[in-house]
């Protein structure tokens, strides 16, 4: 148990030092906050989403139109979860 505590302490120190380093001004000099490296896709969606899909909410136009396959995968995950829960618990529910 003593070695597990040592491993947990080392992991905590490493994670904490990375998180503190990321808010220091040095990290902001390397890559400033709010200025992404590849903004081409963002700019395209922000300028064209209203004309191409007609939806004012650009997030919905991304979720259901530009990245529709992602939503299809999410729907599959939810369907599988519900099917598994019903399959396991139906025995206990209806005796």
């Amino acid at each position: 148990m003593r070695s597990r505590d040592a491993v947990a302490l080392i992991a905590l120190v490493l994670l904490g030092s990375f998180m503190i380093m990321s808010v220091l001004p040095l990290a902001n000099m390397i890559r400033p906050f709010g200025e992404p490296v590849n903004p081409e896709m963002d700019d395209y969606i922000i300028t064209h989403a209203q004309n191409e899909t007609g939806a004012n909410n650009a997030v919905t136009s991304v979720v259901f139109d530009y990245r529709g396959f992602d939503t299809l995968g999410e729907a599959t995950v939810l369907f599988t979860a519900v099917a598994g829960v019903i399959l396991i618990l139906r025995r206990y529910a209806h005796g």
């Binding site: 209203q50 899909t53 007609g54 939806a55 004012n56 136009s61 259901f64 139109d65």
Partner: peptide, 16 residues
């Protein structure tokens, strides 16, 4: 809808 920030129409958005 027109480009820019506006309240929009309920009957817009196509298949969304």
């Amino acid at each position: 809808p027109p480009y820019g920030s506006n309240p929009g129409y309920l009957s817009s958005g196509g298949l969304l």
